[in-house]
Write a protein that binds this DNA or RNA. Structure first.
Length: 500
RNA sequence: GGUCCGUUCGUCUAGGGGUUAGGACACGUCCCUUUCACGGAUGAAACACGGGUUCGAUUCCCGUACGGACUACCA
């Protein structure tokens, strides 16, 4: 069982789950499915200061919406409970103590203020402060201080952190699934804090300990973690554990300009960067969500999957199951991907056409009789990007025109059109079968009888009835408006159109 | 500043020592449609730069430039 793939998505409940995080979750999920492994959800809530109420539920809801369902973890349970790091607090202390006992970690008593001052002074000299083999001997810690003094400080309740004693010399290397070999000298890694003074572990310790305990085989996470991967390798080594296989995903970038995609871009660009709508509990600020904007889950998934990965074939449309089948770590790109809303919209249009029309009608046109709803769905489905546009289209369709498109009038309104419209207006009341073919037949007949070409009047008729020069099939539209309504609209238009 | 990572059409990307450098989005044109949209066809559009290696580099190596991430008792 230890051979089988186990991956995890480990977000922090510090706010709405970013869409990049959703992609990370998706790739983990796909890899687990592909390999016949397990996908776990672990909540990394070790930073009490940044904890945001509701964020955890938001993560759960978002994954549930998209069908990225964990096999183990918060919300589903499993053999390694609890899956919330705040509830595993005591565990980490024991591991930190083990490192302390082995001389691989040490106590440090420096206050944040002291360290800030240190950084400032280094910076003023044009260099960067590092807590490492060079500086630790001069700072307040159990390496520089006499054992008796350390004991006294601890006994007196002086706050302390536990830091990893990074070797002065050596090279850390690991083979990333996406980037191949990455090597870093230990001299560029500092003695990172493992246990904070509040007794909570930092990400680095908790993450490594949990990944080991939970038998994680592959760590698939964002590129922002690449710089700390060597530190994590060092931690695995310090514990004498086998490190998992790492795969660092390329970042999601801003649509325009440089930098990684942020909440600001969403506000500026009018598109979502969160899976679902999110209301900040502190400020009340609402952020758009893919779901609420009208993106279908299939489109969201397909779009996200293709941001940094591709199947190597020319197939574009993939269901979640198909993605899982085609997925592989090897086909993930190295370079960051710019977020292009247009592509997301295209996917949405494609998947929208694949939806069950009756279900769409029921959900988005609930006030209409089923058959009517269905007619409107088929009339408008290929002219919209988001399903909620259906209601707008129907409302617009039902409203009588208040203005008539000037450009069409200017070019098409002439004597032929005027008389044509008159004839149509006269013929319509006696049309018995008010359906597309019948209406068309009647119009065709009356125009032909009077020697007027249909092309001369059809667009004008459209403008007269809808106000617009373009739109869905006119005969079907007329059927939907109903005979009486059409007659009234036509006479209203005739009264308003200028004389020719 | 330091460390690390990256760079093929505007965007997402395929490819990989010898190719007309392929696809998708977006854009243009045409067809379909008595309109528009959908759909179909088609066009324009890319290997960052400089050195190597090689008979031959977009592909391999090294630099440069540019971009990015990280550089917290945040994850």
């Amino acid at each position: 069982m230890t051979d089988s793939v186990r991956v995890r998505f480990a977000p922090s409940p510090t706010g709405a789950l970013h869409i990049g995080g959703v992609r990370t979750a998706l790739y983990n999920y796909l890899f687990a499915r592909k390999m016949g492994g397990k996908f776990l959800l672990r909540i990394e809530d070790t930073d009490q200061a940044r904890f945001v109420p509701g964020a955890e539920q938001y993560i759960l809801d978002s994954l549930a919406w998209l069908g990225i369902s964990p096999d183990e973890g918060v919300g589903v349970g499993g053999p390694h409970e609890p899956y919330r790091q705040s509830e595993r607090k005591d565990l980490y202390k024991a591991y930190a103590d083990q490192l302390l006992a082995d001389g691989k970690a040490y106590y440090a008593f420096d206050t944040s203020e002291e360290l800030d001052a240190m950084r400032a002074s280094f910076e003023s000299q044009g260099s960067a402060f590092q807590y490492n083999s060079l500086t630790r001997v001069k700072l307040k810690n159990s390496i520089a201080l006499a054992p008796a003094e350390v004991e006294q400080l601890i006994a007196s309740g002086t706050p302390y952190v536990i830091r990893l004693k990074v070797p002065a010399k050596g090279e850390v290397r690991f083979q990333d699934s996406i980037r191949d070999w990455v090597h870093v000298h230990t001299s560029s890694i500092d003695d990172k804090v493992l246990m904070k003074s509040d007794g909570m572990p930092t990400y680095h310790l908790a993450n490594v300990v949990d990944d080991h305990i939970m038998e994680i085989t592959h760590v698939i996470r964002g590129e922002e973690w690449l710089p700390s991967a060597p530190l994590h390798i060092l931690l695995y080594q310090a514990f004498g554990w086998k490190a998992p296989q790492f795969a660092h995903l390329p970042l999601l970038l801003k649509p325009e300009g440089n930098g990684k995609l942020s909440k600001r871009d969403a506000d500026l660009g009018g598109f979502p960067v969160f899976p679902m709508e999110w209301t900040d509990p502190a400020t009340g600020a609402v952020s758009k969500g893919f779901k609420q904007e009208g993106y279908l889950k299939e489109a969201t998934l397909n779009f996200l999957a293709f941001l940094g990965w591709n199947p190597g074939t020319e197939q574009e449309m993939f269901s979640l199951t198909e993605l899982a089948e085609a997925f592989s770590l090897e086909r993930i790109n190295k370079a960051g991907a710019k977020f292009d809303v247009k592509k997301a919209q295209w996917f949405n249009e494609q998947y929208l056409k694949l939806q069950d029309p009756a279900a769409l009608a029921k959900e988005y046109l609930p006030s209409l009789p089923a058959d009517q709803g269905l007619s409107f769905v088929s009339l408008f489905l290929d002219r919209i990007t988001f399903p909620q546009e259906l209601a707008d289209k129907v409302a617009e369709f039902k409203a009588r025109p208040s203005v008539y498109e000037e450009a069409v009038l200017a070019s098409k309104w002439n004597a032929d059109a005027a008389t044509g419209l008159q004839f149509i207006a006269q013929a319509l009341p006696s049309v018995d079968s008010w359906e597309p073919e019948g209406i068309k037949h009647a119009i065709h007949e009356v125009l032909e009888a009077n020697g007027i070409k249909m092309g001369k009047v059809m667009q004008i008729l459209r403008v007269a009835l809808s106000g617009n020069g373009a739109g869905p099939d006119l005969m079907i539209s007329m059927q939907l408006w109903g005979k009486q309504e059409v007659i009234e609209r036509l006479s209203a238009a005739l009264a308003k159109f200028p004389t020719v």
